[in-house]
Design a binder for these strands. Structure first.
Lengths: 218, 218
DNA sequence: CCAAAAGTGTTATGCTTACACCCATGC
DNA sequence: GCATGGGTGTAAGCATAACACTTTTGG
């Protein structure tokens, strides 16, 4: 067999764009860098891929280590490999995106990871605060999420197990950043056949209580 | 600055799914492996990413070295990183797909690269002949190409600069593996506004000569 | 009874699909 | 004049978009 060690090898990392919905906004989890390069700037959580784990396992491990959550929606985004993207040397980053639902979000808050914080994705000043090429990665992730919720049912991953149709609609409006027609939305979602009505309502509100639904299989 | 060399590093390669249309069929370029592992099996062209080049540059370089073509349509597909995908050790492969038009196809033929050959993508026995996880990569590339031609104008990349609408339609039929309605196809393509009629016809045929079109900007 | 969000149908519009015949050329 | 692929329009069905009022609850 030919040898593999004739070539200098790059470092390979995974970086994860972790989205959640909070405070009526789309948020991304960022960690403040304590060391150079980009000390003090915000970065996507991530780390080196270990030699015996798959890329997806590496991303799942980082999710567990950095924010304490397991079993979340995780999807490979794109691989960023510009030779100058990390001033320390050649680092290729396989970017993933993850969706954290409302229940797991409490776990993230509780884990109180060092300098991790949720940031609004739509804050126009955020780009300037990011390290490396993480602005580019984040922009790509937002673009992908927007496309994805239009064609798939990935939006459910951002809510609790039980949710109302208005809550789901709000998720779409936040991500797409435009109003959505209530009747057409309900028709479309129900026609997809992916959610079922459960026999409960969200009570204790000062108006007509909403029916709860749940995603088939979660 | 923190050091990068605390972690063992994987090897990183690019593998390229190079498509073309020939003999009324969708073909992929494969090279026969002369060494272990998978000696004698067919593999996607590819090679190691050099330390100072980007991933896209690595893919473009491989295209030039292995098949002699430059300036072709090239798009990152997905990154395959299962730790067992290469028996020699940890090799992460960033897969690309490339589209070779009818003109460049002659260059590929002329380059006569060692053991490179065009194989029909739809040959059901092809999977068994492929090395590594290249069947999986190929399947994913075909899936992506199919989606892509439905939503974008990427199909033009597989034809000569000048082409007839029937030729373009045939490209769609071959890729999608189903018949396409002639009138609806022409309406859809013309409505996209991406091709213009040039004042020529394909003559010397034993029937009414077809008008030639060209893609805007190529 | 007032405030607040939940819930519900119909119509118009545009897009997609199905479909068949005449045209221009070479031989 | 015949064989061959080139070229063209219309109608039906379907999906999407626009739009406003009644219902149920808590206070």
């Amino acid at each position: 067999m030919t040898k593999l060690n004739e070539y200098p090898r790059p470092s390979v990392t995974v970086d994860i764009v972790i989205f959640t919905i909070a405070e009526d906004d789309l948020k991304v989890l960022l960690v403040r860098r304590g060391v150079e390069p980009f000390k003090g700037r915000w970065a996507l959580p991530g780390g080196f891929v270990e030699i015996k784990e798959s890329l997806e396992q590496a991303a799942a491990r980082e999710l567990k280590e950095e924010v304490g959550v397991t079993n979340v929606y995780l999807e490979q985004l794109y691989t960023f490999g510009d030779p100058k993207r990390d001033p320390r040397g050649r680092v290729i980053s396989v970017a993933y995106f993850a969706l954290i639902d409302a229940e797991r979000q409490r776990i993230v808050a509780a884990s109180d990871a060092a300098d991790a914080e949720w940031h609004s994705v739509f804050n126009p000043k955020l780009g300037a605060k990011l390290a490396f090429d993480h602005k580019e990665i984040l922009d790509y992730a937002v673009w992908r999420l927007r496309n994805k919720i239009e064609w798939t049912t990935v939006g459910y991953e951002l809510l609790s197990k039980k949710f109302t149709l208005s809550e789901l609609q709000r998720v779409y409006e936040i991500i797409l950043q435009r109003p959505v027609d209530k009747r057409n939305f309900r028709k479309k979602i129900l026609a997809q056949g992916q959610i079922r009505e459960i026999n409960e309502t969200r009570s204790d509100v000062a108006h007509r209580p909403a029916r709860l639904y749940s995603f088939r299989e979660k």
